[in-house]
Amino acid sequence: MTYSGYLYDLLLIGTLLWLAVRILAEVKLFKAVVLFIAFGLLMALAWVRLAAPDIALAEAAIGAGITGALLLDAVGHMRGRAAPYPTDEPAGDASAVTEMGDGRG
């Protein structure tokens, strides 16, 4: 194990953990899903580091690609906000994705 390889592993793992926290804490679902796609691609790198190229191939195509497409589609349907309840305010359009999940606005 070379020093730079070890550093790379720690960096990769740190990013994975940080992304996981960010995905689950993210208010905007669209952003959370984009972060999740990045997470899937970094997982594919982790599989390569662990000498599992079979899994890396499947993860890159399925984990990041198809799961990401499914999630993006679902978020688009739910208008992309983490506020899960029907509010009395007029529902947002596509721009609702860009605003913070401030239910009082």
Binding site: A20, L29, V33
Partner: peptide, 9 residues
């Protein structure tokens, strides 16, 4: 959606 993301992670 958050729960499904959590399950995937």
């Amino acid at each position: 959606i958050h729960k499904i993301l959590a399950l995937n992670i």
